[in-house]
């Protein structure tokens, strides 16, 4: 339970961090909050030659409005999601998900960028970034680029990030007054990884759903959009019949594997239950 030896570099700028990674021949890891990386090092699931600490890079730190986007620096800590007024106003889905992320002390240290870059399929923020059609800003040896969330999550712990690239910020479209959100998850104990979780954002046109985006987590190798369910709901009002139809459609979107403690059928069932509850809540707040 002790990490293999590594050397340590504290980067002051993004360029310094990228250069250090390149110098190490990419046998390196960036460390932000470290709340998943440090256990992985302790268990020797990972053993890089050098650890590049990005916690002191000021450029990664800010939360600000940029035109029609809220831009969240990669180092935005989970606890800041609960206290930052801009998040509450312009990204309430992230605010709603934050209390479900691990435990308070983990939230004091863990970062949004780290969570999204790790892409744990059981994590809240990657799925909510997907639900929000966010864009992911990436810095790398060949410059900056931006990737849509729908193109970012590729497979289990695999993202569009190439070796040596650093996630710099997440941009989410500003929340509007005709939108509603809902989030919840089912877990055996508070703070545990969810058996299944779901978040959604709907755009309303009077009492009808003009647009809706639904993402689930803990349902497969990657955070998953429920596109069939969304198609059933667009143009409808949220009456009981339509919610039931949405629940029925969910099996077309999910193909979870059996795991030791949760059979696939149980996970789909739980996802349906959760979907129904959340759609019911969306209907109530209208």
């Amino acid at each position: 339970m002790k990490a293999r030896a590594f050397s340590y570099f504290r980067a002051g700028t993004i360029d310094e961090a990228l250069a250090a990674h390149a110098d190490a021949g990419d046998d390196a890891r960036f460390i932000a909050g470290g709340q998943s990386l440090v256990p992985a090092l302790a268990l020797r699931l990972q053993a890089p030659r050098i650890l590049i600490d990005i916690n002191h890079i000021d450029e990664l730190r800010s939360v600000r409005r940029e035109g029609e986007w809220l831009r969240l620096g990669a180092l935005t800590r989970h606890c800041e999601m609960l206290t930052e007024p801009l998040v509450a106003e312009f990204a309430p889905l992230l605010r709603a998900a934050a209390p479900f992320v691990a435990h308070p002390a983990i939230r004091n240290r863990g970062t949004l960028g780290g969570s999204v870059a790790l892409a744990d399929p059981a994590s809240e923020f990657p799925a909510m970034v997907l639900a929000l059609d966010a864009e992911i800003e990436i810095a790398g040896p060949s410059g900056r680029r931006c990737v849509k969330a729908s193109d970012f999550f590729i497979d289990l712990f695999e993202t569009a990030l190439a070796p040596g690239e650093l996630l710099v910020a997440i941009r989410v479209p500003l929340f509007r007054s005709n939108q509603r959100i809902a989030f919840d998850e089912l877990a055996r104990r508070r703070g545990d990884y969810a058996l299944v979780g779901c978040g959604m954002i709907a755009t309303l046109d009077r009492d009808r759903i003009a647009d809706i985006s639904i993402a689930l987590f803990s349902v497969g190798n990657v955070p998953t959009r429920a596109r069939s369910v969304e198609a059933v709901l667009v143009g409808s009002s949220l009456d009981a019949g339509r919610i039931a139809a949405a629940q029925a459609a969910l099996s077309a979107d999910l193909a979870p594997a059996d795991s030791d403690d949760v059979p696939a059928a149980m996970r789909v069932h739980l996802a349906r239950v959760l979907l129904g509850r959340l759609l019911g809540r969306l209907g109530e707040v209208r």
């Binding site: 504290r10 460390i31 435990h103 002390a105």
Partner: peptide, 29 residues
């Protein structure tokens, strides 16, 4: 547990509770 699950190692880092098993001493410089 040395993996952030049990909370026995909590300390305050710049006034906030964190797991002392989930950071390296060199990071606290």
């Amino acid at each position: 547990c040395e993996m952030g699950a049990c909370g026995a190692c909590l300390v305050q880092l710049d006034g906030r509770a964190v797991h002392a098993c989930l950071m390296f001493a060199v990071q606290a410089d």
